[in-house]
Structure formats: C-alpha cells, structure tokens
Write a protein that binds this DNA or RNA. Structure first.
Length: 685
DNA sequence: GTAGATCTAAACATCC
DNA sequence: TGGATGTTTAGATCTA
C-alpha cells in the first residue's frame, strides 16, 4: 500500500522504499530480568514457611499430647473393664453404655482443635506460602491427626460393642457350658486385643518413623498397647475403609488399593459382611500395595517392561524412598520388598492421595474463580464467535480506550467490549483477560511495540506459556521474525526455519498456518530490515539492525501524569513488584510467577513499568554522554544507528523523531523511545 | 480526520 | 504439475 515501487528488490540493496512502509517498531528497551529475578517474594515465602513449620511442630506436639491423654484414658478404661469383668459380671447396662460415651467425646473434642480444617488447608494452599515439601509434611501431620481421630472414634464403637457382647453373654444364661463359652469368647477377645495391640503399636511406630508422629527425646514412650485394646481387625479395616472412603469413591472399582488389607497380619474371626470386599485379597489390584505383587507387577508392566510410574532414572520414585535400582527387575524386587503392603506404605499412599485431593481441590477452586472472572468480564458479549479463537494477549491493551471508540465494523472488539470499565486497564503490557480468551481474532496491537517490553525477555520468561497456550504473542510479525533470526546461531534463517521457530515457540502458530506464513513472507519482503542472502544452503534471511532501528518510533500514550507518576515511583519498583507478586498470589496465578514459566500478565506489567522507567533514565543518560556507563547494550553495539544514522526526512521531521526526543529531559515530555534501550546484544550475542 | 503501522488476504512469479 | 518461496497489492483496523 505504502510502497512507492514494487519493482526493486531488496536484495540488491538499492531498493528505496517509502520510509514509512518499513516502519515496524520494536520498542524494546533494556531488560531488567535481573532485577525481576531479585524479587523479595522468596524471602517472604521463606518466613511464612518457617512460621508454618514451627506451627506444624507445635501442632504435632499438641497432637501427640492429645494422643497420650487419649491413650491414658483408654488404658484406664480398659483396666477398669478388665477388673469389672474379672471381679463381677453384673453391671448395670446403663452404666456400661454411658461410660464410653462420656469419655470418648471428650477425647474427640480435645483432638478436634488440633486438626486444620479444610478451609484452613485451602487457605494455606491459596496463599502459596508453603513449599511442596512443607505441604507434604503438613498433610502428613493432618493425616496422622485424622487417623488418630478415626481410631479414637472407632475405638469407642468397638468398646461399646465389646461391652454389649459381654453383657449379652452375661445375661444369656448361667449354665456352666455357656459360662465356658463366655470364658472362651473372652479369651478369644483377649487374643484379638493382643493382636490389635501389636498392630496398633506397629502402625504408630511406622507413623513415627515417617515423621507423621513425632516423639521428642526425653519423653516417655507412648503407652501404645492400650490404644488397641478393644479393637478387632475387621473393625480396624472398617476404620481404614471409612477414612479412605472419600478417596476411593473417586477411583475405579478395580483400583481399590487404598483400602487396607489386613488379612495378612490379622486373624479375623468376626469380620462383618460389609468388609468382605476389603478382606478379599483379589480386591487389591494395586501391586504396589499388595503382598501378592510380584506376579501382578510383572504382568501389569509387560507391555512397558521398563515403564513404571514409580521408577525412573534408576531411582525408586516412591515418596521418600529414592532408592537406587540398577534395573527394572531390581526395582521390582525393591518395590515388593520395601514397599509391600504394610502400614507405612499404606500411610504414604494415603498421604499421596491427600496431596492429590488437595491439588484437585485447589484446581477446582481456581477453575471456579476463573469462571467467575470470565463471567464478570464477559458480561457484554453480544456477538460470541461460534468457534473458539486463540487467545490474544493484546486485546485488553486496547480495550480501555478503543472500547468507547470502536467503530461498528471493528468486530474484533465489539463482542467483548464492556460498556462499563472493568478493572482499569492501565498502561501495561499484555494482560490476559477473559475477554480475549473468548473472542478475539485479529487484534492489531502488540504491546512490545507500545510498552517496550523486550521481546527476548518476554519470550524467555513466558516460553512455556507461549508454547502451551494458544495465545497470540503480543509482538509484531516483524519483531518475531527478527527474534527468530537473532536467536539462531548464525543470525540467519531460511524461511522454513523461521516457520519452525514460530511453531516451536508459539502454540498459536500451530494453526492457521497459511495465514501467518503468508504474513511472515509478506513481512520479510515488505520490511527492508530483513535481508535475503543467497548462500550455499539457498536463501536465508538476516536482520539489518540498522534498518530495523531506523523504523519510525512510536510513543506511548502521551499522558504526562502517567509518565511522571511512573518516574516518581521509580524508587518504589521493588515494593511494586512485591505488591504485584502478592496480587498474583492472591489471584492464584502461581504457575507463571517464576522465571521458569513467567507471568505474561502482571509480571510483564511490572517489567514494562520498570523498563519504562529505566528507559527514561537511560534515555537521559544517553543524552548526556554517549560513553556513559549507563548506556544500554544497544547503544554499545550500535551507537551509530540512532545518533549518527541519517534519518529519513519524513521521520526526522516528525514530532516523534529521535532527534526531537533526545533533547527532552523533562519528565513530562512525550515519552518517545529511541531504541537504545533495546538489549540487542543480549539477543544477538 | 489523517498518516502511519500492522495484519490479513490474495494474486502473481519463480524455483525446485 | 504442485508446492515452496518470494513479491506485490489491496483493504481493514488501530494508534498517534
């Protein structure tokens, strides 16, 4: 359109195109990645984590004390019962019924405050102040506490049943044979109690081994034995079933590994029918927990002989294990020997289930929040697209202004343009909003051009995001092509390699290939900053940085107050960053807060603001001296490009020309950006 | 309102 | 001949 002549090719170097036609801008400035990576958030998290750790220890100690009290009570109670059984069998039924009922609830009431409520857990998860390890510890602790509760409750029930049985036996008759039967039954109960003692002791010891229960040095050993008195294996199984019912409900019928199979350690003499499923050894299909695993393990992994979720890189991935297994058979051997069905493995499995459940809860909550956000922001959707469109990071940038000015034919905006201002969209880079999630097709603005976000740092920070989310990168084709070329080792790419870079780096460009490929070719041909070079491989494309930097600059919105505020707040960048991070955490955007994933929203906003400020500062510095140490890398590499390269007349005469802007020192000047801030050397070298 | 920048689409030419 | 590559043009949209 703007070209004067299309007859000249760029490769001959004599093409004189309209200067304005090559005016793609890349308003990139010095990166502040280092500053961004030096946020205070880790310190804050660390403090919170330490505090939480201390609280965990306190809670564990409290739980331990409560458990001791419970055990003492149970011991006393059991002794009384035994004495009663031995001395006289005639007791009032009322008294027998009331006794446990009076004791156990007190115990439970004492235990309850020690357990973190789901809401509190959710809050902890939301605040993201705990590391995964700390979360795991917390969950383990909660698991232990919940287990204690369940044990106590079940112990109460069992006591009631036991006493009821004894009463029935005593009231049944006083014939000698029956008395012998009663005595035999009592003996059987005693044996069961003994077994339960051992089982409970083993379980608590295993919990203690894992850190689920902590016993501080110097404290007397737990009176473990009385805890188990009065319980029978089937009841314990029922307890386990109850505890794990919430989890197993989500699982398929063939995946009943969460149930504790006690058949190998307990002799059940009175298993209720309802526990038959658990008692059935075939019900446990998970080889990891079953003692019958070897054959099943080998069978289940026949198709993938060396693929096992618990085995990788020669290491057992069982939580907390990390045992080195040279090969898969040795791993299986290790798995079956070290992680067979026992209390420890079961507890670890349940902890893992708890972790998964919490994560699922968190996911569900975040999904709900996202839905609410989308609902809130999508109120004025009057023209929903039939097919979902890829995300576009930039639509919201123009939303605030263009919403009121959008012409009727500006369809890309109208569907999502809210009449009432949403959260004020300030001068910031791409803010992923639900508006653009829903709609947007071709949206023009590219925040890199407007807000000077370095494309290299943005792509680096949000690499995973761009790769996985179908989000349109907020950069122009020219910027992206240039970035692709500069990322290459030889600073030159064939067209196909450019294509590959696009598809590799951005999920967005894995669709509508014809469109964007055409645009790439179009940009390569249109902009004279892209130079086609013939070599042995064929034609490759390179970047002429001189031409690229010569492109006509744009200025950000000439809002003096904004610029002034930005400058005046320069000293508060760190608190701002902290606030932004807090805001991100508050808004549950944890996955992209780190450099590994990057945050395409607030993180870039912060970086954009900082870079704006730094750009202004460096801008001033560069005016003072070209050899100033504060010069940006771009200046160091291409000092001549901006300062000495003659500008096209129409560029020079414009109010945005570099000559004009470099004379500005006032904070109220039109915030024109020369391109000295662009970290070209970072990109190129 | 206008110029410039950008994007999309398309036509056309050339080369392999 | 078809696809890839490269060039050019046109129109639409958005911003300054």
């Amino acid at each position: 359109m703007m070209q004067e002549s299309g007859t000249e090719t760029k490769s001959n170097g004599s093409a004189i195109q309209n200067g304005s036609s090559s005016g793609n801008h890349l308003l990139e400035c010095g990166t502040l990645r280092e500053a961004r990576s030096n946020g205070e958030a880790p310190a804050v998290d660390l403090g919170a984590a330490d505090l939480t750790h201390v609280q965990q220890q306190q809670q564990q100690q409290q739980a331990l004390q409560v458990a001791r009290q419970l055990l003492l009570q149970q011991q006393q109670q059991q002794q009384q019962q035994q004495q009663q059984q031995q001395v006289s069998g005639l007791k009032s039924p009322k008294r027998n019924d009331k006794q446990p009922a009076l004791q156990v609830p007190v115990s439970v009431a004492m235990m309850t405050p020690q357990v973190i409520t789901p809401q509190q857990m959710q809050q902890i998860l939301q605040q993201q102040v705990l590391s995964p390890q700390q979360l795991q510890v917390l969950l383990q602790q909660q698991q232990a506490l919940m287990l204690q509760q369940q044990l106590q409750e079940f112990y109460k029930k069992q006591q009631e049943q036991l006493q009821l049985q004894l009463l029935q036996q005593q009231h049944a008759g006083k014939q000698p044979k029956e008395q012998q039967q009663v005595a035999t039954q009592q003996l059987a109960f005693q044996q069961q109690l003994l077994q339960m003692q051992q089982l409970q002791q083993q379980h608590l010891l295993s919990l203690q081994r894992q850190g689920l229960l902590t016993i501080q040095p110097g404290q007397p050993a737990l009176p473990l034995q009385p805890l188990a008195q009065g319980m029978i294996p089937t009841e314990l199984q029922q307890l386990w079933k109850e505890v794990t019912s919430a989890h197993t409900a989500e699982e398929t019928t063939g995946n009943s590994h969460s149930s504790l199979d006690l058949t190998t350690t307990c002799v059940s003499s009175s298993a209720p029918s309802k526990t038959s499923l658990i008692m059935n050894p075939h019900a446990s299909t998970n080889g990891q927990l079953s003692v019958h695993t070897p054959k099943r393990e080998s069978l289940s992994h026949e198709e993938h002989p060396h693929s096992h979720p618990l085995y990788g890189h020669g290491v057992c991935k069982w939580p907390g294990c990390e045992a080195v297994c040279e090969d898969f058979p040795s791993f299986l051997k290790h798995l079956n020997s070290e992680h067979a069905l026992d209390d420890r493995s079961t507890a670890q499995c349940r902890v893992q289930m708890q972790v998964v459940q919490q994560l699922e809860l968190q996911l569900a909550k975040d999904k709900e929040r996202l839905q609410a956000m989308m609902t809130h922001l999508h109120v004025k959707s009057t023209e929903p697209k039939a097919a979902p469109q890829p995300l576009n990071l930039v639509s919201s940038v123009t939303l605030s202004k263009s919403a009121s000015e959008a012409s009727p034919q500006s369809l890309p905006h109208t569907p999502t343009t809210p009449t009432a201002p949403l959260t004020p969209v300030t001068q910031g880079p791409s803010v992923i909003t639900t508006t653009n999630m829903h709609t947007v097709g071709p949206i023009r603005r590219r925040y890199s051009d407007k807000y000077n976000v370095p494309i290299s740092s943005d792509i680096a920070q949000n690499q995973e995001f761009y790769k996985n989310a179908e989000v349109r990168p907020p950069f122009t084709y020219a910027s992206l092509i240039r970035q692709a070329i500069l990322e290459s080792p030889e600073k030159q790419l064939t067209l196909n390699e450019i294509y590959n870079w696009f598809t590799r780096m951005f999920a967005y460009f894995r669709r509508n290939a014809a469109t964007w490929k055409n645009a790439v070719r179009h940009n390569l041909s249109l902009h004279k900053c892209f130079v086609r070079v013939e070599n042995v491989k064929g034609a490759v494309w390179t970047v002429d940085e001189v031409e690229f930097q010569k492109r006509r600059p744009q200025k950000i919105s000439g809002n003096p107050s904004l610029i002034k505020n930005m400058q005046s707040s320069h000293a508060y960048c760190t608190p701002l960053n902290a606030a932004l991070q807090a805001s991100m955490a508050e808004n549950s955007i944890p996955l992209y807060t780190t450099a590994s994933m990057g945050n395409p929203t607030l993180g870039n906003l912060a970086s954009a603001i900082r870079e704006e400020l730094n750009g202004a500062m460096e801008h001033t510095n560069s005016n003072e001296s070209d050899s100033s140490p504060g010069r940006s890398p771009m200046q160091a590499v291409h000092p001549v490009h901006v300062k000495e390269e003659p500008l096209d007349p129409e560029e020079a005469e414009g109010p945005l020309s570099l000559v004009t802007t470099t004379a500005n020192h006032s904070p109220d000047f039109d915030h024109d950006r020369d391109y000295e801030d662009e970290p070209v050397n970072e990109d190129m070298e």
